[in-house]
Simulated scan of single mutants.
Amino acid sequence: VAAAPGGLGEAANDVRQEPKVHLLEAMREAADRDMIARQYVTCFGDVFGVGLAALKAALARGEGGMWPTVFAYM
């Protein structure tokens, strides 16, 4: 079995080929198997919805230092 660096397999819009579609179209094609692609398709819904809400909640509780970021990440 050959290694797939970074977990890359083969796809219709493969990163090893010249682009045949616009970036957003490629992201739509990959959204069901790639979290970064899903963020493009959902206007970064997880980042601005879930993550930002967790960050704001941690700050509102008085968390300091690295902890607001940790809570947003988790």
Rank of each mutant, 00 (worst) to 15 (best):
V70H: 00
L55S: 02
L52Q: 06
M66I: 15
Y40D: 03
T42D: 02
G9H: 09
E25H: 02
T42M: 01
A30W: 14
A53R: 10
E29D: 15
F48W: 10
V70D: 05
G45S: 14
D32F: 10
P5V: 06
E29C: 04
H22Y: 10
C43I: 12
P68V: 02
A60G: 04
F44N: 04
P68R: 01
C43V: 10
R33C: 14
R16S: 14
A37T: 08
P19F: 03
A57L: 13
M66T: 09
Y73V: 12
G49W: 08
R33Q: 15
F44Y: 10
A31F: 09
Q17C: 14
A37N: 10
L24C: 04
K20A: 14
A54T: 07
G62L: 00
A2M: 14
R61M: 04
A3M: 07
D46L: 09
K20T: 15
T69A: 15
V15S: 05
M35R: 11
G62Q: 01
W67H: 00
P68W: 11
V21H: 03
V41G: 03
G9E: 11
V21I: 00
T42H: 00
A3C: 05
A11R: 10
A58G: 03
D14S: 12
V41R: 04
L24S: 03
A31H: 09
